[in-house]
């Protein structure tokens, strides 16, 4: 066995204040950073940034599996230019997307709508995840409800006998495959 862990003494040393102080300081740092990240100004997006952002959500009508932002097909270049014009004319992001959906059909938008059957694509993963987490919680509840099994002297004798038997067999047969299905 390794030497007794030195952590033990370090862990219990100090008053609760001293123990929690580093974590409190850490929390302050993290909260400060996150608030700067969330509310700090990034400057208003330039028209070009907006064009790029919109183009990423619109599918290239003539190529396979690329967005307008990625594709260099003539149709995509036209749409990019058109988006730039619309941004310049002061149209909102949503309006521009709605225009393209109206012109080419919903399949031009890379974000599936959340209405009708299509909503399933948003709902199903969330439901599946929730069910999995709930299942884990239930299983842990059940496990923690059971009393942990304690080995009695009789159990230990049984294990000992079984191990000895297995050991002898292994030595005897020089059990080349060595993995009893019992384990």
């Amino acid at each position: 066995m390794p030497e007794p862990a030195p952590e033990r003494s370090a862990l219990s040393a100090g008053s609760p204040v001293r123990r929690w102080l580093p974590w409190a300081a850490l929390a302050v740092v993290v909260v400060t950073c996150l608030s700067i990240a969330a509310f700090g100004s990034t400057g208003t997006p330039t028209p070009q940034d907006r064009v790029a952002a919109i183009a990423k959500t619109i599918k290239c009508p003539t190529c396979s599996g690329e967005s307008v932002a990625e594709s260099n097909a003539p149709a995509s270049q036209e749409i990019r230019a058109d988006i730039a014009e619309r941004v310049q004319n002061g149209q909102g992001d949503g309006d521009i997307r709605a225009y393209y959906a109206g012109r080419y059909g919903d399949a031009i938008l890379l974000t599936p709508s959340a209405s009708g059957v299509n909503a399933l694509i948003w709902i199903l993963p969330v439901v599946a995840f929730a069910v999995a987490v709930a299942g884990l919680v239930v299983v842990f509840r059940r496990w923690s409800g059971e009393a942990p099994a304690h080995a009695s002297a009789a159990d230990r004798a049984l294990v000992e006998a079984a191990l000895r038997r297995e050991h002898e067999q292994a030595v005897e047969a020089d059990d080349a495959h060595g993995e009893g299905s019992s384990r």
């Binding site: 959500t57 059909g105 399949a107 890379l110 974000t111 599936p112 059957v117 299509n118 694509i121």
Partner: peptide, 20 residues
């Protein structure tokens, strides 16, 4: 595979891309 499923169900074409 959702676009395939939707197309099979109601013959509707949708795209699922990076934003999703």
């Amino acid at each position: 595979i959702f676009p395939l499923v939707i197309e099979a169900i109601n013959d509707d074409r949708i795209s699922v891309g990076t934003p999703y």
